[in-house]
Amino acid sequence: MLGKHLLSAADLTRDQALLILDTTSELAAVTDRSVKKLPTLRGRTVVNLFFEDSTRTRLSFELAAKRLSADVITFSAKGSSVSKGESLKDTALTLEAMGADAVIIRHGASGAPERLATAGWIDGAVLNAGDGTHEHPTQALLDAYTLRRHTRDGQGDLSGVRVVIVGDVLHSRVARSNVLLLQTLGADVTLVAPPTLLPVGVENWPCKVSYHLDDVLPDADAVMMLRVQAERMAGAYFPSTLEYSRMYGLDARRMALMSPDAIVMHPGPMNRGLEISADVADADRAVVVEQVANGVNVRMACLYLLLGGASSEGDGSQ
């Protein structure tokens, strides 16, 4: 089973990742029926603690928790002027006093979820919903689930599946979590980005790196486009958006280089015309909307597996 928290895709073993994906498959059936509610987490309190803007992740976690009958509180701390360390601690103590069984945290500072989980401020489970440029494990899980549906018929791991991740790897917690999780599941990952948008030490990541998108597209089973994160870019990382788009954007010409069965993924929100052209975003092989739907089911699976049983120190005897 899983550990107490979900902080990093790197913490998941192959078996744990497969357990989450298999649980997601079973929960997906619930999402297809007319009564979508399950009584499983009745009486549990889940707090959405969002220090950064988010639409789909916050809504997705909220819906997932509600479908499992948990009580959900959403706390948007945007605009708080309190310094980060103090603010996080005080907020955590407040949530603990209110009896939160799980805290889903998004924070601009890398490592904030880890701090929340290990500082002893709260007893509940902590789920990382994106921290700085570090990790976003549930996004990687929903991407792995989507990939497994399209390339492996929804069964087993992703061994041999060739995934190309394109764009702003430097600022992307999605890319980092995906590289770690997809590698655990046996996929073959290639990062494509301009040298300025690759992190220091990327040569030690468990993946290949290329600067030329056209060269790697024909062999890909899936192409994952990353959002150009203007809000995290203080300096100049590329000469112009037009040049970026020409070198690393996915347009109809490039899509034609892909194998006919290969899919196009994007974690959203999309910058149409920048990293992905509108006709590609709306193409049949673009599974962006399906990724969102799968996200709810993946988060239900994570909440169930973290909160659905006795607390980890409790007895597990059958």
Partner: peptide
């Protein structure tokens, strides 16, 4: 559910 470790779902 809360008396035992979390269980894997069956189809």
């Amino acid at each position: 559910l809360r008396l035992r470790q979390v269980r894997a779902l069956e189809p």
